[in-house]
Design a protein around this nucleic acid. Sequence first.
DNA 1: GCCAATCCGGACCAGCAAGGTCCGGTTTCC
DNA 2: GGAAACCGGACCTTGCTGGTCCGGATTGGC
Lengths: 149, 149
Amino acid sequence: MLRVSKLTDYAVVVLSRLEAEGGVQTAPGLAAATGLAEPTVAKVLKMLAQAGLVEGLRGARGGYKLVRPLGALPLSEVIVAIDGPIALTACVDGGFGLCEAEHVCPVRGRWDPVNAAIRGALSAITVAEIAMPKPANAMSLPVPVLVAE
Amino acid sequence: MLRVSKLTDYAVVVLSRLEAEGGVQTAPGLAAATGLAEPTVAKVLKMLAQAGLVEGLRGARGGYKLVRPLGALPLSEVIVAIDGPIALTACVDGGFGLCEAEHVCPVRGRWDPVNAAIRGALSAITVAEIAMPKPANAMSLPVPVLVAE
DNA sequence: GCCAATCCGGACCAGCAAGGTCCGGTTTCC
DNA sequence: GGAAACCGGACCTTGCTGGTCCGGATTGGC
């Protein structure tokens, strides 16, 4: 269905809340503020920390804080942090020929430009644009809107 | 994982084969030519026919044929035909508030520009570009392992 | 110096959608 | 009339995602 995982959605919400509050926030606190389940928020935060998008401070009075403002954080990085590498087809996942139709498959490896296009589109949008829409004319990005149906 | 279904991949392969052969091709014939399972190929062809991307001819000596050259067929149409509407998050699927965190969710509906960007990127690429790269060094790709950064 | 709060890194389980197969029915050509 | 092929479903299985939980490590406060 060409979708990102819900965890990615949660990540954007949490990130947004993190910037709105500012400073260091605890996982339970963020959970309460966003209305999401605590273990889930903790999981998202852990993934984000592993990817280096937030910094985890251990011990009492610890928590998480942003290492970069959301305006400088492309959406693609969040997706990669949560969902893994951005690659549309399973062919590139495994790495080598587990595709039994390898010899006759004329599409083999040809999805690369598509992947590149997607990555480009996702890298051009920052988390801030999704989380914090400007009150007035927020939409100034030139996207060729084509609703296929 | 931000991926399209494997059926979509198969669709591109089948479409490619359909144009390479030209004329009317049967589902079993396409299956043999592509190395894919017959029922799977039939399923893909059926979906493509429903979406109007190919035309199904019934009866003996029947089969499927392209209604448009692949060069005039944007990839987005194939994805929509197989995977359904292009929308990255489940939030926009339902249309209204099945998200219990609706009031506190600052991201609500904000994925629209992202979806638009993806659609734009996918509409700019035709199936022909994926299926028919370059006649010369088509076999020179040693499996692009992982495209993450 | 001890205790509590908090992150860290896993393992674990349930639900669901995708992938794939099969069957009966209908249409058309030989 | 029979065979070939599409059509439109239902069906089952597999894998992944979403979500929870637990023990261990680390740090600040009393």
